[in-house]
Write a protein that binds this DNA or RNA. Structure first.
Length: 883
DNA sequence: GCGGACTGCTTACCT
DNA sequence: ACAGGTAAGCAGTCCGCG
């Protein structure tokens, strides 16, 4: 085959839209060659498996059993294992067996199997209780929607809202993401034993801990040290014909043909399936590309059949928004063309699209997860398009389309379609498969199947960890309303109206330029508090009289000192693993890079979970929601902050600023820092660390708004208008010029020179603005529409006004979209970029000058420069007030 | 009937 | 569908003023 660059790839001229067969009945599905009945992925139940990783669990409604999907790295395929232990779904009741047998709808329930009497430990009551275990034939009998479901019949049930396969995982104590073997139909885990030196190290680090705590450490070390397998996977993307430009085809209607589908797998195979235009059918089309296999189809059904083949073969399919678009579209399109449901290897739910054989990960959903965005990727991306995420994480994004999808030539279509699946795959392969490892480690800690983990939020992750532990220890899983009635609501008052309880403290900044600033902070403050103060739903406001004097600062609540709290131990042990082992190992230069990378992934994963562990306690949606627990954590946080500020001062160090868990110290000596750290360790039992050292810091008079300049000249910009996403580019550019100047300031004697340059920058920006030298896109304000347009009832903000103008002009505006607009002098005051006057005739210069002033005033104030001085007061005054 | 003071809404940020 | 705290900029309302 000759190698041909993509550009020289044989090109068909653009064909008008009607030449595609839209819903031509002739094209309806008539199976020509049947797809093999047994796909590669499904395996014989009797087969022995030496080693495979459990990555998914679900319930088979026909067979009426739970099943697992196991991935074998050796064979690169998925094995199904159906439960053969006669495990059945159940729920619990506090009524006796006899009392239950007198309830006729239950006694006569067709799904009831039997009732057993069991003992459970009730943490809310702190005593053992006798319960009845109501066992049913299938999950729907317990928790179906029907009013005849068992949980609806009985006045009170426990553990009836747990999905069957999750309960199955708890009961079998299955370790998701860990290796198992199957022999003669029996499933057994393969015990992973970490290397001797790792165990020795861990033992010595945790030698002084409590026995139970050590058990948790031992559990985590097995899960976290066990190598993560590399899963063979394939990214998929489809392009759909659209008769109207700019309209995204409806995946539920699937009215238009799928004109291209691209596949890229981890082995480097690239394929694009292309549907031919009507005139080209039966015509030979050149397909010579060096590394891409382009396959042309005359019939859409055959193209879809080929997609299905792929969906049956690969263990893991990646998409970007496949739940809501690609797989949904393929499913409905196949139905429209006459495929039978059982011929489609996709399981379509109202919100998800799963696969019958393999696993489907929708990366859009995973990256949309706020914990992943903020903690795993430090908010590197702020928009959730494939392009934006790719630019932020991979360094390059999509090449923009020159014309609408339906007007592309074959070669442009191939390139475009391929680009999407290429980026999708790369999102899981960059940095040595970081994302896949992250997912795997999260599965292991949370015990969630891969599909659920990548789709659910952090509150479900933590719920699942907690439920798994309750079951392991034979604790009764509490009902949400019972926690609330036992513990009550918050006792503190929030500073912000509408919030439920008081949060963190922020120390008022000392404005100005400060040299030699050391920032210290508590390592994982809230998780540390949860560990050290024994915080858990059962320990805060416990039932014991003797604990009532163990008061929480600033609150009427007390904490148990009889029993070790469950969440305290779980979160505490995870915290310690991160701080004392994984974080140090990730930085250990004596280790090979690949190992350091792995340690870094684990510490990132732990960070994600730990950062969310406090927040969920204060969230109504969390199943173990407990306001006193949440406010206890923040109360101890404020207490630690206050005591540390006092201590620093008594050591003679000036505290310039502090937020939640950090303190900005003005030129402290190493001894002073050591003393403070030592004091914190002894008196607070919390680890205070040096977080960063600034050559100097520019503190504004505002909280959460400052600059920090490191020794090497790089600059932390926090909160300032100049870095906010919605700020117009002309301001951002001028602001960044100022940052550059500040990065070059070595010592206080350079400040004056820098000030002069900054004055020039501001003045220059002002003149350019007044002379209308900035083009429209430099003046655009960018603001997200965060809810449906008709939900803006109380007020109509500017971006909504602009959005409404867009709609009037025939544009589509959706929730989550960023509206780009400029400020104008007409009575509406705004105009969307798309409709704005390129000549800048109606620009509201006064507003833009005010914006310039507020952007720079934040910093200028601290530098002792007056914005008005720069422009000359009279000049500004005459401009603002007229002369 | 007009303008300043005030409150509330919305977004984007910090920890 | 993890929390609260802070700031900016605007929308909308209230109050007092012959």
């Amino acid at each position: 085959m000759t190698i041909q660059p993509l550009e020289r790839f044989t090109d068909m001229k653009f064909k008008p839209i009607k030449t595609y067969n839209l819903n031509d009945k002739n094209e309806s599905y008539k199976p020509i060659k049947r797809i093999e009945k047994k796909p590669f992925l499904e395996t014989d139940q009797s087969e022995n498996i030496a080693k495979a990783y459990v990555i998914s669990a679900n319930y088979d409604g026909k067979k009426r059993v739970a099943y697992l999907k196991l991935y074998s790295t050796k064979r690169k395929k998925i094995y199904f294992w159906y439960d053969n232990t006669n495990h059945l779904p159940y729920c619990l009741s506090d009524l006796s067996k006899t009392a239950l047998e007198n309830i006729n709808p239950l006694k006569n329930h067709p799904g009831l199997t039997r009732i057993e009497t069991v003992k459970k430990y009730d943490l809310l009551k702190d005593k053992e209780v006798t319960m009845s275990k109501i066992i049913a034939k299938d999950p729907l009998s317990i928790g179906g929607r029907s009013s005849r479901a068992i949980r609806e019949i009985l006045p009170k049930t426990w553990e009836a809202n747990i999905r069957y396969y999750n309960g199955y995982i708890y009961d079998k104590q299955l370790l998701m993401g860990m290796p198992y073997k199957v022999k003669a139909g029996k499933l057994n885990n393969i015990d992973y034993v970490p290397p001797e030196d790792v165990l020795r190290n861990i033992q010595s680090i945790f030698k002084d801990e409590h026995e139970n705590f050590k058990k948790y450490i031992a559990h985590w070390i097995k899960l976290l040290q066990c190598p993560v397998p590399d899963i063979q996977r394939l990214a998929l993307d489809i392009e759909v014909f659209s008769p109207k430009e700019d309209r995204i085809p409806d995946p539920n209607l699937a009215n238009n043909p799928i004109i291209a589908t691209s596949f890229i797998d981890t082995e480097g195979n690239k394929r694009v399936l292309v549907l031919k235009n009507k005139e080209d059918i039966n015509k030979e089309v050149e397909t010579g590309l060096s590394d891409v296999k382009v396959e042309y189809y005359d019939k859409e059904v055959e193209l879809i059949e080929e997609i299905f083949k792929v969906l049956r073969i690969y263990p893991l399919i990646l998409t970007f928004n496949g739940d809501d678009f690609d797989l949904r579209y393929i499913y409905h399109r196949a139905e429209n063309l006459g495929f039978q449901k059982n011929e489609i290897p996709i399981i379509l739910g109202s919100r998800f699209a799963l696969l019958k054989y393999g696993i489907h990960i929708d990366l859009y959903r995973f990256f949309f997860n706020r914990s992943i965005q903020n903690y795993a990727f430090s908010r590197k991306y702020t928009e959730f398009s494939l392009n934006a995420i790719a630019i932020a994480l991979l360094g390059s994004g999509k090449i923009p389309l020159k014309s609408p999808i339906s007007k592309l030539t074959y070669s442009e279509l191939v390139k475009y379609c391929l680009m999407d699946s290429e980026l999708t795959l790369k999102l899981t392969t960059f940095s040595d498969n970081l994302v896949m490892k992250l997912i795997f480690i999260l599965m292991r800690i949370t015990k969630l199947p891969m599909e659920d983990l990548t789709r659910q939020g952090v509150s479900n992750w933590i719920k699942n960890i907690m439920y798994f532990e309750h079951r392991r220890l034979n604790y009764l899983i509490p009902r949400s309303e019972d926690i609330l009635s036992a513990k009550g609501n918050a006792a503190s008052t929030a500073l912000i109206k509408g919030k439920k309880y008081k949060g963190a403290a922020v120390v008022n900044p000392t404005p100005g330029v400060h040299f030699n600033v050391t920032v210290v902070d508590f390592a994982s403050l809230y998780p540390s508090i949860i560990k050290v103060r024994n915080i858990s739903y059962e320990t805060v406001l416990c039932t014991h009289h003797e604990c009532r004097n163990n008061k929480i600062p600033d609150l009427p609540h007390w904490i148990c000192h009889v029993r070790k709290g469950l969440s305290s131990q779980i979160i505490g042990s995870l915290r310690d693993m991160r701080v004392k082992w994984y974080k140090t190992k990730a930085k250990d230069q004596s280790l090979p890079e690949s190992l350091r990378n792995f340690y870094n992934v684990v510490q990132l994963t732990l960070k994600v979970l730990l950062n969310a562990s406090y927040g969920v306690m204060g969230s109504e949606n969390f199943s173990l929601y407990c306001p006193p627990v949440a406010e206890a954590v923040t109360a101890y946080g404020r207490d630690a902050m206050k005591k540390t500020v006092d201590m620093a001062q008594s050591l003679g160090v000036k505290v310039l600023y502090g937020d939640t868990d950090s303190l900005f110290l003005k030129s402290p000596t190493p001894e002073q820092i050591n003393d403070l750290i030592k004091w914190s360790n002894e008196k607070l039992q919390m680890e205070l660390e040096i977080e960063k050292e600034y050559r100097y810091s520019v503190l504004t008079k505002l909280k959460k708004n400052y600059l920090g300049i490191y020794q090497d000249g790089t600059v932390d910009i926090k909160g300032l208008i100049g870095k906010k996403r919605h700020t117009p580019k002309f301001l951002k550019d001028a602001f960044m010029k100022m940052i550059k100047i500040l990065g070059d300031v070595q010592s206080s004697k350079d400040i004056e020179k820098a000030k002069k340059s900054i004055r020039n920058i501001v003045h220059d920006c002002y003149s350019k603005l007044m002379n209308r030298e900035y083009t429209l896109d430099y003046l655009t304000v960018n603001i997200t529409i965060s809810k449906p347009l008709n939900k803006y009832i109380k007020t109509t903000p500017q971006h909504v006004k602009a959005a409404k103008l867009l709609i009037k002009a025939g544009y589509d505006v959706k929730q989550g979209q960023i509206i780009r607009f400029i400020k104008t002098i007409d009575d509406i005051g705004v105009k969307p970029l798309q409709l704005a006057d390129r000549e800048l005739k109606d620009i509201d210069l006064k507003k833009y000058v005010e914006h310039l002033k507020s952007t720079f005033d934040q910093v200028l104030d601290a530098l002792g420069i007056s914005f008005n001085d720069i422009l000359g007061i009279s000049k500004l005054d005459s401009f603002l007030w007229g002369s």
